[in-house]
Design a protein around this nucleic acid. Sequence first.
DNA 1: TGCCTATTTGGCCATACAACCAAGTAACCA
DNA 2: TGGTTACTTGGTTGTATGGCCAAATAGGCA
Lengths: 106, 106
Amino acid sequence: MSPKTKAKYEARAAIIKALAHPTRLFIVDQLQTRKRCVCELTKLIGADISTVSKHLSVLKSVGIVHDEKVGQQVFYHLKTPCVLRFFICVDSVVKTNAEEQLALLR
Amino acid sequence: MSPKTKAKYEARAAIIKALAHPTRLFIVDQLQTRKRCVCELTKLIGADISTVSKHLSVLKSVGIVHDEKVGQQVFYHLKTPCVLRFFICVDSVVKTNAEEQLALLR
DNA sequence: TGCCTATTTGGCCATACAACCAAGTAACCA
DNA sequence: TGGTTACTTGGTTGTATGGCCAAATAGGCA
């Protein structure tokens, strides 16, 4: 693989890597409808606020979300809603796997 | 997050995690046109064959690729081509990031 | 059968990740 | 100004990942 090709796939992988965590996928899904502050996401997720803050900074660093400070709160919103389309494909893979698993039991 | 919700996002994350590596993204891209054996992919990638084999097993374990043994060779093919659509969105994120980076320099 | 080729698996090591707690920063309010 | 709330950052620890080498497995051919 040439250095140029390698760099291309590394750039892509960095974005996908940022999505490759259940909590971050949940966050992306929650931001689908509206922007939310860290405190709200923390309540929904049920982890330490520092953990949630770090997940958000991962998503922000690759440009998937954007943040906006309003008073003492920081609101995050989805910058690239196209990532939501991932779910459609991913869910179809999950479903196919489950069906194949079932078929094996017959 | 309820246990059920958590399980849903964990299942999704497992699929995305399998894609979150430059070499595996390259493999998926290469399988877009036709199935290929491990040896061919190994040449294209330029890593140890054991490394490539492990990457393929990661993709296989989550149901993104399928393998088929023909003689001494094992051919892998893309089982869920919808993952190729990820690239469109991901590349747009990469491009936007680059543009914003440029804008900062002005 | 015995060798050769293709691939997988196990072992090892270095690095990266995710979680929590604790400490630091920033904005608002009394 | 001093306290409170909201958030981020640093530190630590355990676990997962990715790479290579070496060994094991499997199919084909002499």
